[in-house]
Amino acid sequence: MGARTGSVVQPCARCGSRWAVQNKPLYWCPRCRGVLLSPGPVDAPAEQRNYRWVVRAPGRRGPVTRPALRADRTPTPHYREIPTWGLRDRPAPPPAAARRGRWDRSPEQVLRLLRVTALLFLIAACAELGRYLILLRNRTALIDPLVLGLSDWSVWIAELVAPLAALGAAIGVVGWLADTRRAAFAAAGLRDPRPRWLLFTGCLVPVVNLLWPGVYLTELVRARAAGPRGVRGGAPYALRAVRIWWLVWITGGVMVAIGIGFRFTHTLQAQANGVIFAVYTNLVAVAATALTVWVMHAVDGRDLRGRVRVPKRWVPAAGPARPVIAPVEPEPAAEPAAEETEPVKVAAR
């Protein structure tokens, strides 16, 4: 529909028709029910218009029509049930008991042995500290031979029993590591690339065991997270536990090497420094043993105290039931204030 030059028209945003404004502007196009733009002179320059023209393909000057549906079009995708993303958190079924080898122990036995080992290293640290205090006392006074003999026997026994307990605990931990790795890779549909003999070699051979245990544990955590039943939210927690344990483990290995070097010294001051350094080494061994318990719990989805860690589930929450900003309501008209009258005082006769 055309309009004479100079008249005020409303173009249609859909079909491009221009409609002359008679009494008041319209909102919808009478032809295609498209949105009508604001009124303006038909011959107004581009910089004075509050709309712009869109170039159409040749041959499409009329109203835009919707294409007809084809018979071979696939049906609209839909869900057969209401999606429950993040609203359902079923606990993973307990893993089946894996076959244990000759050197393997159950996780409960390994944890008990680790606790006993930590206690023995703590006793060894106390024995070394007692010997250091005796050395300090010996600078100004003689020591009773009985006290000196008890100190020597306590140090020798503690330094002999604690490493043996640590060796037994290490064998049990490596057996647990091998079984857990095999179960984790099997749950992910894979096979453990590390054979059992390689795990024992990398974890028990001195110097080599400073590097490979951390690698094996990191592979285990990532395999657990990649499995169909793995909780991805627990992977960062377990990786953090492994890295802290790895750092303390390397520190303890370096301190053991330095402590062995102190035993080849001959001066009294160097031997005294070796005694106090042995106290620190035993305390680091206690920390490494406790962190080993933490790593085993973290890999199994538990916290330091052995309780099952429930992953946090973030779900979209609806808005507040009532608006945050109250609607603006007109204030009621103020009523005229009543004139206050002073009470009449009547004088008593």
Results as ranks from 00 to 15, higher is better:
residue 152 D to G: 13
residue 97 A to F: 06
residue 16 G to Y: 02
residue 130 G to A: 13
residue 201 T to I: 14
residue 298 A to C: 06
residue 26 L to S: 12
residue 23 N to P: 01
residue 53 W to D: 15
residue 178 A to F: 03
residue 273 N to A: 15
residue 287 A to C: 02
residue 18 R to D: 07
residue 74 T to Q: 14
residue 104 D to E: 14
residue 104 D to W: 05
residue 204 L to T: 03
residue 8 V to S: 07
residue 13 A to H: 12
residue 17 S to W: 05
residue 122 L to V: 07
residue 343 P to Q: 05
residue 48 Q to F: 03
residue 338 A to Q: 12
residue 333 A to I: 11
residue 173 V to L: 13
residue 157 I to P: 00
residue 95 P to C: 07
residue 34 G to N: 01
residue 26 L to D: 12
residue 224 R to L: 14
residue 233 G to T: 14
residue 128 E to F: 15
residue 150 L to K: 03
residue 14 R to E: 11
residue 258 I to P: 00
residue 286 V to E: 01
residue 111 L to S: 13
residue 133 L to T: 10
residue 104 D to A: 03
residue 300 D to P: 04
residue 149 G to P: 00
residue 198 L to S: 08
residue 70 R to T: 10
residue 216 Y to M: 01
residue 215 V to S: 05
residue 263 R to Q: 13
residue 85 W to S: 10
residue 193 P to D: 05
residue 7 S to R: 12
residue 193 P to I: 01
residue 326 A to L: 09
residue 243 R to C: 02
residue 275 V to P: 06
residue 1 M to E: 02
residue 219 E to P: 05
residue 239 L to C: 02
residue 263 R to D: 07
residue 114 L to N: 12
residue 85 W to T: 10
residue 231 V to F: 08
residue 184 A to M: 01
residue 87 L to S: 11
residue 108 E to T: 13
residue 41 P to E: 02
residue 28 W to C: 03
residue 7 S to E: 15
residue 265 T to M: 14
residue 262 F to M: 10
residue 77 P to R: 09
residue 149 G to K: 10
residue 181 R to G: 07
residue 292 T to K: 00
residue 174 V to A: 15
residue 8 V to W: 08
residue 18 R to V: 13
residue 338 A to V: 14
residue 163 P to T: 02
residue 317 A to V: 15
residue 52 R to L: 02
residue 99 R to A: 15
residue 242 V to P: 00
residue 32 C to G: 07
residue 5 T to I: 09
residue 320 P to R: 13
residue 132 Y to Q: 12
residue 145 P to E: 01
residue 19 W to T: 09
residue 106 S to K: 06
residue 262 F to H: 04
residue 174 V to I: 11
residue 280 Y to V: 14
residue 77 P to A: 14
residue 186 A to V: 01
residue 270 A to K: 08
residue 135 L to A: 13
residue 297 H to K: 07
residue 222 R to F: 03
residue 171 I to A: 14
residue 258 I to D: 02
residue 185 F to M: 00
residue 6 G to T: 10
residue 21 V to D: 06
residue 250 I to G: 09
residue 91 P to I: 06
residue 29 C to I: 08
residue 46 A to D: 15
residue 62 G to C: 01
residue 248 V to N: 01
residue 19 W to E: 11
residue 235 A to R: 14
residue 314 W to V: 15
